[in-house]
Simulated assay, not measured.
Amino acid sequence: MSPSSSEHLIATGRKILEQEASALQSAALVLDSNFSRAVTTICNCNGKVIVSGMGKSGIIGQKIAATLSSTGTTALFMHPAEAAHGDLGVVSPGDVVICLSKSGMTEELNFIIPPLRHIGVIIIAVVGNKRSFLAEKSDLVLDVGSGPEACPFDLAPTTSTTAMLAMGDALAMTVMREKQFTPNDFALTHPKGALGRQLTMKVSDLMISGSGIPMVRQNAPVTELILEMTSKRLGVSAVVDSSGVLKGIVTDGDLRRHIQEGTAFLDRKATDIMTPSPKTVSPGTLAKTCLELLETFRISQLLVCDKDNRPVGIIHIHDIVTQGL
């Protein structure tokens, strides 16, 4: 068997993509009031949304359940074969069950329909055959079409599973909008992702605190100030009064400037060379907001102060950047 030309392979791939895209367009055209009723049903569900399907449809079902869960709707996947051997115990009255099957005649799935009815759930069928057993026994039917698969033998689930996946996305995203699910809500279910870190990570999560804060009193000699800055290795020191209230800040740049001026600054006090009323942030400031301040003013660190303007921490730009923000 001689290998196909590059042009032939590209043409084949393009044809398959166009066939699947056509199936999605057809599913969009036949979308009816059952879709809006399904959305309302899921939004009003006080229990769980359980997604079930066999084989490739089951894999699509797992993705749909995961999408619903991450966008504000409690959902899980239930394998129909395992359900018939005890996993139906996760189903409670008032739940919504979404069943996926192109033919609507999947034996393992249809076997659990009567017990689901007995438990007292609302069944939404996502099928390609509206005259099937599954469709007839369900409360709502979402038609994904029964056209040919992209498989050259019309056997491997391809076009049908693409349509199921898209229908699941349409449901999840519409429900998400109806529930007014926000980016902040999204961040709570995605704390490890970049968006989650941007919307949840605070200065208090990253700042150096306690004895790690470089700090001297106003009347401290410059020699003590230099030792404090050197030992804490942050290139900066807070200057506070006897009550611990922030009065100013000294950076290594300030020290260099005074040296260049040729003044006998080693005999001076911290208050003589500090920059008064420096920019600060609170512990509750979002790390993303803190990063924006650092970049705007082109500085490397910010002191973190409590409501009484007492330093409780210091945060360096590297502490934020290393978190992927």
Rank of each mutant, 00 (worst) to 15 (best):
S26G: 03
I299D: 13
Q180G: 11
L171C: 04
S5E: 10
G210P: 05
A125R: 02
F181I: 05
E295M: 12
P214D: 05
P152F: 07
I314G: 14
I317P: 14
S26C: 04
D32W: 01
P3C: 06
V281F: 05
I259Q: 14
S132Q: 13
D185L: 01
C99V: 09
G128K: 06
G212Q: 14
V90E: 03
L155A: 06
N184W: 05
R177V: 00
A38L: 01
I123G: 11
M105L: 07
M176P: 00
S101E: 06
T159L: 00
L116H: 06
G58I: 04
Q260S: 12
G72A: 04
I64A: 04
G145F: 01
K63N: 09
L195K: 08
S160C: 08
G13V: 05
M54N: 06
T182M: 00
H190R: 09
L140D: 06
L68S: 12
L171G: 01
L246H: 09
V245E: 13
K179A: 01
I208D: 04
K130V: 10
H258Y: 12
E82Y: 12
V245P: 06
D205L: 07
V203M: 12
G13P: 11
Q25F: 04
V96K: 03
G13F: 05
T67Q: 00
T67I: 02
V141M: 04
A187G: 13
E149M: 15
A170T: 11
T182Y: 01
Q323E: 09
R217N: 08
L116P: 09
L17N: 08
G244E: 05
T263P: 03
V30I: 15
K130H: 08
R37M: 03
E18K: 15
E178G: 00
A66V: 07
E108T: 14
D306C: 14
T182R: 00
T12R: 13
S2L: 06
G145M: 02
P152V: 08
D169H: 15
Q301S: 15
I124G: 01
K63C: 07
M274D: 02
F186G: 08
V240T: 13
T158R: 11
V175D: 00
V96R: 02
I113F: 02
L325K: 10
E18Y: 06
A287D: 12
V39T: 00
G94A: 07
V126A: 06
